[in-house]
């Protein structure tokens, strides 16, 4: 059997990629970033496996200390590139960042699904969808949103970028620790609560503006 991660990746990217020329500019940009997120996941999975073997196969240690960092750094790269080279528009960055995160989560969930096909259930899917899916989205949004600020304050750019990545990695690591503990439900609740808070804040801001 071929490496299933690649099979899924090809299935996803080819079908979405073929759709891109038919899309409007904004939508296309979001979809491109989603595909970048999918690609980032594949890339990171290889890095993670190297790190896992490098750290003596200690799965728990690696998933709570190492992979959050690698994942957040790789996910942030397309956003950083966009911010530095193309535009630092806050709305665009936030939207792109969320697309990267969701794309990342989509491939991650699919790969885990096929790797554990015998033990998955609808509950597992809900937990993954609301938990991991949101975590990746929120973490990348935090980076994207933050970059739109620090890009305009150049003195803050380096340490600000680092701070954003550190925040995202810490949040991600907390999630990873929780979902591997006996308090799994807290791990799932964490991103859900964060997401609801963000949505409420965003709505309030929109209301104030209007």
């Amino acid at each position: 059997m071929d490496n299933l991660s690649y099979v899924i990746y090809v299935c996803l990217t080819v079908s979405i990629g073929l759709m891109l020329p038919l899309m409007e500019k904004k939508t296309r940009r979001v979809m491109v970033f989603m595909l970048l997120g999918v690609s980032a996941c594949l890339f990171v999975s290889e890095i993670n496996s190297i790190l896992l073997s490098g750290f003596g196969g200690d799965y728990y240690y690696v998933t709570t200390n190492i992979t959050p960092l690698t994942e957040e750094i790789v996910k942030a790269l397309p956003i950083l590139y966009y911010a530095v080279v193309i535009s630092d528009d806050r709305r665009a960055l936030t939207m792109n960042a969320f697309a990267v995160g969701v794309g990342f989560a989509v491939l991650e969930n699919l790969v885990l699904l096929v790797q554990n096909i015998d033990s998955v259930s609808v509950l597992w899917a809900l937990a993954r969808g609301f938990g991991s899916g949101l975590v990746h989205g929120i973490c990348t949004v935090a980076v994207g949103f933050g970059i739109s600020y620090i890009k305009k304050r150049r003195k803050l750019f380096y340490c600000g970028t680092f701070a954003l990545l550190a925040t995202a990695a810490s949040y991600h690591a907390v999630f990873n620790i929780l979902v591997q503990s006996k308090y799994q439900y807290l791990g799932i609740l964490l991103p859900v609560i964060t997401y609801i808070s963000i949505i409420l804040l965003a709505k309030n801001r929109l209301k104030k503006r209007s």
Binding site: Y6, F43, S45, E46, N48, Y60, E108, S119, S181, Q184
Partner: peptide, 21 residues
């Protein structure tokens, strides 16, 4: 504490993604 039903991260099995990426 080591229960990992939800699988925290994804790990690859070796492939060209690393080089291409």
């Amino acid at each position: 504490e080591r229960n990992n039903e939800l699988y925290a991260s994804v790990f690859g099995k070796g492939g060209p993604a690393l080089v291409i990426g």
